[in-house]
Design a protein around this nucleic acid. Structure first.
Lengths: 139, 139
DNA sequence: GTTTATGCAAATTCTTTGCAATACT
DNA sequence: AGTATTGCAAAGAATTTGCATAAAC
């Protein structure tokens, strides 16, 4: 576990460093894709669900992670790409496979932002494409 | 209530017509925006939650309605625009106001569809922009 | 010593299912 | 008669909160 990296990042965000916060952040940073609260609970056996929940709440408020709702009924979390802020430009496309029920982060594809009618102002974008992933299409 | 219009539409989709299905479809067609199961439950006092749920399930399977997950924790439903099918091209942009917690259908703005990497095939798109709506921005 | 974080348990909310009763064909 | 639909009740799943304990400043 890269304790140092996590500690630094928490520090820079002005989030007080605690063992649990390091564990949660580390798990998220190591994750290949997104993680749900349940995923984190499974991975961090020793840590209580509510602690993880509140940790994620803090992380999100400080724009260290963002949440993605892929329509599966459980919200997914992901560490923000850019260190400084989690802007709209930072949001990328997600793909949900209806066969294997996995959510893929297509980090190279940023979420499109359409022009909104007069008066609407955007703060974040949730862009999920659902369909069949390559490995499910094969087999 | 425009009984006739609902009956016709159900017929054309090959969905057996029942009083409840007419009620649910009518409520959805009259709605200015999207409706959650809870919204429908409130509006159709006499009808049980589970009946509405199963009705929506059937409607969705027959592409008469589609569901939108706006990340609020309750799935919203909406009658498909095109009579025939509810294709990707049919999906439009939704806007969720973080102040008043309302979901707006921007029917004129179709949901963008990015190019996916080799192997991924898209079946539907969920595109939600979150921010502040005109009336909340004002007051 | 006061504030903040954590764990446990339980409440809430939303969704889904089992089953008996009813209505339709 | 036999199938499909509905209501009631309750199960499930995910999220959220209250409160007491423990840790940090």
């Amino acid at each position: 576990m890269d304790n140092r990296k996590c500690t630094d990042r928490l520090d820079r965000k002005g989030i007080r460093v605690t063992p649990i916060r390091i564990l949660v952040l580390d798990a998220l940073m190591k994750a290949s894709g997104t993680m749900s609260l349940a995923d984190l609970e499974t991975e961090l056996e020793t840590v209580d669900k509510s602690s993880i929940f509140r940790t994620l709440e803090i992380f999100e408020k400080h724009h260290l992670v963002h949440s993605i709702d892929d329509g599966t009924g459980s919200v997914k979390f992901e560490v923000c790409e850019s260190e400084d802020d989690c802007s709209i430009a930072d949001m990328h496309t997600h793909f949900y496979c209806e066969i294997c029920h996995k959510t893929f982060c297509l980090k190279d594809i940023s979420a499109p932002l359409v022009d909104l009618p007069e008066g609407f102002s955007a703060r974040s974008v949730n862009y999920i494409i659902k369909g069949v992933c390559p490995s499910c299409a094969r087999g």
